[in-house]
């Protein structure tokens, strides 16, 4: 490496930067503690912010030592990844956009750069330039790591919530001996309707249900895809020997279905869950009557 030879007794610029970071770590951490990124995340005490800054500086020094200033996957970064993501997440929660967080991280660079330049007053200008460049690249990589971690955190959160939604959204309720119901809530996509179908059929077996009620009161819109899912579920339940009733079709949805020309002719439908239950009970040979003859509201 010719550049290396030109530097004489000095190491490569990256190593030089690593040494500098280790030497001046305390000072850098002190300065960083006043930057918005650290100040707003570590609100308890300034010491805490300094401590956190020190850890980041150490990690940067380690990366610089190994000459991997370009590499966001460098071993040194894994130590501080969690902390960086915490900082990134705190800023995002405070309503900052990704670009603003990026700027915050970028704001960490000038104080270090000033220190570096003042640290090498009599060094050859080649070396100073090499070191500043290495430092800039290193800080750029840090910025990349922060954003990457923040983004992957977001992705993980979305994935977790999606799974939770799948679990939460499909309870099968036993309404009566031999009658189970699934209140469907939210938009039905293929994955969800598959889960609904499976849990419903399992419940039919477990509860020896003769009737299964699909209540779609909580489904905002019904398009041909949702209708197809409903038909599939109804057909599968029928194959197992249970009868499926679809309830909770609101007037607007009924209109949509008719406009779309969907044929739900093979599906038994009722206006409300109560109607569906009354129908199923009647078919089972049970009937609900009021205890007092004068009681109001007999359907």
């Amino acid at each position: 490496m010719p550049e290396h030879e030109a530097l004489g007794e000095h190491g490569s610029p990256a190593r030089e930067v690593g040494e500098f970071l280790r030497r001046r770590g305390e000072q850098i951490a002190q300065r960083w503690a006043d930057e918005p990124l650290f100040r707003t995340v570590f609100t308890v005490s300034r010491d805490e912010a300094v401590e956190a800054g020190k850890i980041v500086v150490d990690a940067l020094a380690q990366v610089a030592d190994t000459d991997q200033v370009h590499d966001p996957d460098a071993a040194g970064f894994t130590l501080v990844r969690e902390q960086l993501s915490r900082m990134g997440a705190a800023r995002s929660r405070a309503g900052f956009t990704t670009a603003q967080v990026s700027n915050d991280v970028d704001a960490l660079r000038p104080p270090v750069e000033n220190l570096l330049v003042s640290d090498l007053p009599d060094a050859p200008s080649d070396l100073v330039r090499g070191c500043t460049t290495a430092l800039t690249v290193l800080m750029g990589t840090l910025r990349l790591v922060v954003l990457e971690t923040a983004l992957s955190e977001g992705q993980a959160l979305i994935e977790r919530q999606r799974l939770q939604l799948l679990e939460v959204a499909t309870p099968v309720i036993k309404l009566w001996d031999g009658i189970v119901a699934v209140p469907l809530i939210g938009t039905l996509d293929s994955a969800r309707s598959q889960v609904v179908m499976e849990t419903l059929l399992e419940a039919v077996v477990d509860q020896h249900a003769r009737f299964a009620i699909l209540d779609i009161t909580g489904v905002p819109t019904v398009d041909s895809l949702v209708a197809q899912h409903l038909m599939k579920t109804v057909a599968a339940a029928r194959l197992m020997g249970a009868e499926c009733v679809v309830s909770g079709i609101r007037p607007a949805i009924a209109q949509t279905i008719v406009h779309l020309g969907l044929d739900l002719g093979t599906v038994i439908t009722r206006a409300s869950l109560a109607d569906a239950l009354a129908y199923a009970l009647h078919e089972l040979g049970a009937d609900i009557v009021n205890a007092t003859p004068g009681g109001a509201g007999r359907r």
Partner: peptide, 11 residues
Amino acid sequence: GMRPAVAITLV
């Protein structure tokens, strides 16, 4: 006695 998995497959 059709199993749920069988019913789903047929559908």
